[in-house]
């Protein structure tokens, strides 16, 4: 246990960081560098850079394309709840990273809702999982990787909840671990109390982070490059005026 815990706490985080950062940067760099031979916006239409930006933002923040009339609004709800909760949980975790002595006020303000999100997120997660099993068409298109990532996130969530509500680690201990890692100082495991459930949670999070650059979860970056959304109806030669001649 000691060796393993030491590895998970003192070694793996740097590997995780490296894989995650290099991986994500590489993937994004590839998309960035690929040329677009022609603009291919899909209506409803962006007619300027501004409206293209607005459209991407609406898609990222509100999942507007999923909400479109004629689409599947239950999926929209489940998906949006999942993502917004995920985002809130991430923000909540900043309290371990920010402020050596005191956590910034806005991070503190987010604690309540962050915990609520952690409890809530299991519902959309289970929904997303179930629909892959229940609907014949979605089952048909699903690959093992699709179940894997949902189960992985679910286990991150459950191990986190268990650690928080049952094993009850001390915030100061966790913060000490994170701050030490950030300062590249090895953590002396004999000086802190870290429950097994916390170690499991910490490990699973790192697996998730390392998995991201190789998987479809990269959509979080790709959505900003999608030509049908970022391109707009422009061009010098097109006109809508009959008065050219």
């Amino acid at each position: 246990m000691g060796v393993l815990a030491n590895f998970v706490v003192n070694v793996l985080p740097y590997i995780t960081l490296l894989v995650f950062v290099v991986g994500v940067v590489y993937r994004v760099a590839v998309w960035w560098s690929r040329p677009s031979p022609a603009p291919i916006p899909v209506f409803p239409g962006q007619r300027s850079v501004g409206s293209a930006v607005a459209r991407v933002l609406a898609d990222v923040l509100l999942f507007r394309s999923l909400f479109r009339f004629g689409g599947n609004r239950i999926l929209w709800l489940g998906s949006w709840l999942f993502h917004i909760s995920f985002g809130l949980i991430l923000l909540r975790h900043l309290r371990y990273f920010l402020g050596a002595e005191r956590v910034p006020g806005w991070v503190n303000a987010l604690q309540g809702i962050g915990v609520a999100a952690a409890v809530v997120i299991s519902i959309p997660l289970l929904y997303l999982l179930l629909r892959r099993i229940v609907h014949a068409d979605i089952k048909w298109i699903s690959t093992p990787a699709d179940y894997f990532v949902l189960l992985l996130i679910l286990s991150v969530v459950l191990s986190g909840l268990y650690a928080k509500f049952f094993a009850k680690p001390f915030v100061v201990d966790v913060k000490y671990v994170i701050r030490s890692l950030m300062a590249f100082q090895p953590v002396d495991l004999s000086k802190v109390y870290l429950s097994t459930s916390f170690l499991v949670h910490f490990f699973l999070v790192q697996v998730l982070l390392m998995y991201i650059p190789f998987s479809k979860v990269m959509h979080f970056g790709g959505v900003f490059f999608s030509p049908t959304r970022t391109h707009y109806f422009g061009g010098e030669a097109h006109t809508k005026s009959s008065e050219e001649v």
Binding site: W31, R34, P37, G70, L75, I138, K216, M218, F225, S226
Partner: peptide, 24 residues
Amino acid sequence: MRKERKSVQLYLDICVRCGACIKQ
């Protein structure tokens, strides 16, 4: 193809197989 067209590279990479497009 994937090197010459951003759309192809990206759309090969980021589909989450959510199925929102299926019945459309």
